[in-house]
């Protein structure tokens, strides 16, 4: 998957179909490294246009991030379930 932060407010974003969405569940999963790299290259254009900062790829398995860092980033602080994206679910 591909993620970044929105410049204006820092919100965590995910890549979907050439643009950005706010929830991980809606995001594209890249089965092939080439597709992922192409998306990352395309995301750089959004950096240039000052829409997002710091785009990068991360690993998922069965649609769920492998690293704890990305699980927390997708949900919000595990110690404050009332905050972050998890609060809207």
């Amino acid at each position: 998957m591909l993620t970044a932060n929105r410049l204006i407010d820092g919100t965590v974003l995910y890549w979907r179909g050439g643009g950005w969405v706010e929830t991980l569940g809606e995001a594209d999963v890249f089965a092939e490294p080439q597709t992922a790299d192409a998306a990352l290259a395309a995301a750089k254009d959004f950096v240039t246009r000052n829409v997002v900062v710091n785009p990068y790829l991360f690993e998922v398995k069965d649609g769920r991030p492998v690293a704890e860092r990305e699980i927390i980033r997708a949900a919000g602080p595990s110690v404050r379930r009332d905050l972050g994206k998890q609060a809207d679910v």
């Binding site: 932060n5 410049l7 204006i8 407010d9 820092g10 919100t11 965590v12 950096v47 246009r49 000052n50 900062v53 710091n54 860092r69 927390i72 980033r73 919000g76 602080p77 905050l83 972050g84």
Partner: peptide, 27 residues
């Protein structure tokens, strides 16, 4: 920065000198 006259690389030292970080969920 918001108008695009500064890149993130150019802006980052300014925001850090003013105590502003970009963390996991937000600034």
């Amino acid at each position: 920065r918001l108008k695009g006259e500064l890149s993130e690389d150019q802006f980052k030292p300014f925001r850090l000198m003013n105590g502003l970080y970009l963390q996991l969920h937000a600034y």
